[in-house]
């Protein structure tokens, strides 16, 4: 598959000596939604900033659609759209003026029809002539997206797009991201809401302390790192786990018996366990299963690093 962003051995050391990125290697494939997960201060924004030209990487190379982002910055940056984390707007400008400015500054000829379409898609068209300062936080966030879309990027960076956004707007944002992907835009989003990555991403990268710990297909990651548990609520407490059940990976918590099994094994062990429980005459009156979420995987991974 064609890579639209190729990052090789990127390090970033800030003036004070703080190393924000450690030897980051990452390829982003054309047309995918890639979620960069990490706690606050993990290096997500620095990585995006290094790709987009907000900051310069100390070493390493970054190519966008084959163009070096420093030597061929015009060609490279023309492909990119960036929605930064912070709501940075010109308070006195109208929505339309600020979106038009973005298109112009990227060297694209004026196209009011396109801008109107983007504003309509983002439910901003009725605010078109309102000054930015009269807009709510959620509306400003939409304007930030409209600005990035105004110059028709091939790769869109959304840095914490739903931070501080209400549930309805978050869902709207998700719909928009899917729609953009259908139109062929590659999307890279950073988030610390794992739910968001779980809902949207094709692939997930986990970054912490400036190091990219893992990059994996979302499903594969959940399968590989995920745990599956079957929880049996017993009729009465067990004094101890009978000998014949010791071969299973069991935990006992009061009258709950928890069976940990591998997702890849699927239900292979489950049947046998139920049969063995019957034979040992252990009765249970409830049974549930639980699969670890991306969040649990993430927390474990970041803790482990």
């Amino acid at each position: 598959m064609q890579n639209v962003v190729e990052i090789e051995g990127v390090n970033k050391i800030y003036e004070g000596g703080f190393q924000a990125l450690h030897d980051v290697n990452l390829n982003i494939r054309k047309g995918e939604i890639f979620a960069l997960l990490g706690p606050n201060g993990a290096g997500k924004t620095t990585l995006i900033g290094s790709i987009c030209g907000i900051t310069d990487a100390t070493s390493g190379s970054i190519r966008i659609c084959g163009h070096d982002n420093r030597k061929e910055f015009r060609k490279a940056r023309a492909k990119l759209g960036l929605v930064p984390q912070e709501l940075t707007t010109n308070a006195f400008e109208s929505v339309n003026a600020t979106v038009k400015f973005s298109r112009g500054v990227f060297g694209k000829p004026a196209n009011q029809e396109l801008i109107d379409q983007i504003l309509t898609d983002l439910s901003l068209i009725d605010k078109k002539n309102n000054p930015m300062m009269t807009l709510s936080g959620g509306m400003k966030r939409r304007v930030m997206i409209a600005k990035a879309l105004s110059h028709e990027p091939e790769v869109l960076f959304l840095d914490e797009p739903t931070a501080g956004v209400d549930v309805e707007l978050r869902k709207d944002m998700w719909r928009l991201v899917h729609k953009l992907r259908e139109n062929g835009v590659t999307i890279i989003l950073t988030t610390h809401y794992i739910e968001e990555a779980e809902e949207m991403a094709d692939r997930v990268g986990v970054i912490t302390g400036g190091k990219l710990l893992v990059v994996e297909e979302k499903q594969a990651l959940m399968q590989k790192m995920g745990k599956k548990q079957m929880i049996l609520t017993l009729e009465r407490d067990l004094d101890e786990i009978p000998e014949r059940l010791k071969k299973y990976n069991l935990e006992q918590r009061g009258c709950e018996l928890i069976f940990n099994y591998d997702v890849k094994d699927n239900s292979k062990g489950v049947q046998e366990l139920v049969r063995d429980l019957n034979e040992a005459n252990i009765q249970f009156h409830d049974l549930s299963t639980k699969q670890s979420s991306l969040e649990e995987i993430f927390v474990e991974m970041v803790k482990g690093s």
Binding site: R74, R77, P84, N90, V105, K147
Partner: peptide
């Protein structure tokens, strides 16, 4: 205001 990000990330 922080809007400088746009100038720095533009192909100019």
């Amino acid at each position: 205001t922080g809007t400088i990000y746009e100038l720095l990330s533009a192909p100019i």
